Simulated scan of single mutants.
Amino acid sequence: MKTSSNPPTATQGTDAAKKIVGRKRSVVTDSLGLLLVVIVMAASVTDNRAGIQVLEQLKVAYPSVTKTWVDAGFKNQFIEHAATLGIDAEVVPRNTKTPGFHVVRRR
């Protein structure tokens, strides 16, 4: 079972890409992997929207943060919002030539 048997329907959504119903977790860690911010949203929330919300919480809690690395799922809207907060958001793509799981630099 991926979640509790009767969660409130307002906290759930359908992720069309992954074809699952549930929740999405957005996490910000420091360079050591320690958690700084975690938010849980409906799975239907886009990565950009979740990322913007987590960035806003990050900037309030840790105003000295000036750099973040994200995956290719984050688009221009997220990067532009990060810039307005004074955060340089760098997209780090995965190596498409390597099949399966592999460690990606900076993420």
Rank of each mutant, 00 (worst) to 15 (best):
M1R: 08
T3A: 12
S4R: 05
S4T: 14
N6A: 12
N6F: 08
N6H: 14
P7V: 03
T9A: 04
T11V: 07
T11I: 04
Q12T: 05
G13D: 01
T14S: 03
D15M: 03
A16V: 13
A17G: 04
K19D: 11
K19A: 07
I20C: 08
V21K: 03
V21R: 11
G22V: 09
R23Y: 01
R23I: 09
K24P: 05
R25V: 11
R25K: 15
S26C: 06
S26H: 15
V27C: 02
V28L: 02
V28R: 02
D30M: 04
L32A: 07
G33H: 02
G33F: 02
L35Q: 09
L35G: 06
L35A: 13
L36F: 11
V38I: 14
I39F: 10
I39M: 11
M41Q: 14
A42K: 09
A42Y: 01
A43D: 05
S44F: 02
S44L: 10
S44R: 02
T46Q: 12
T46P: 07
D47I: 08
D47V: 07
D47S: 13
N48Y: 11
R49E: 10
G51P: 06
G51L: 12
G51W: 06
I52S: 06
Q53P: 03
Q53F: 03
V54C: 12
V54D: 07
E56A: 10
L58A: 06
L58F: 04
V60D: 13
V60I: 11
Y62T: 06
P63E: 07
S64K: 14
S64F: 11
T66M: 02
T66L: 09
K67F: 01
T68A: 11
T68H: 02
W69Y: 15
V70H: 02
D71W: 08
A72R: 10
A72T: 15
G73C: 05
F74C: 04
F74D: 02
F74K: 06
K75R: 15
K75S: 08
K75P: 00
N76F: 00
N76E: 13
F78M: 12
I79V: 15
H81Y: 14
A82N: 00
A83V: 00
A83I: 01
A83D: 05
G86F: 11
I87L: 10
A89T: 01
E90I: 00
V91S: 00
V92H: 00
V92A: 00
P93W: 04
R94G: 14
N95A: 12
T96G: 03
K97S: 15
P99L: 03
G100H: 07
F101T: 12
F101K: 13
F101H: 12
H102E: 13
V103Q: 14
V104H: 04
R105N: 13
R105V: 03
R105E: 14
R105M: 10
R105P: 07
R106C: 08
R106S: 04
R107V: 01
R107Y: 03
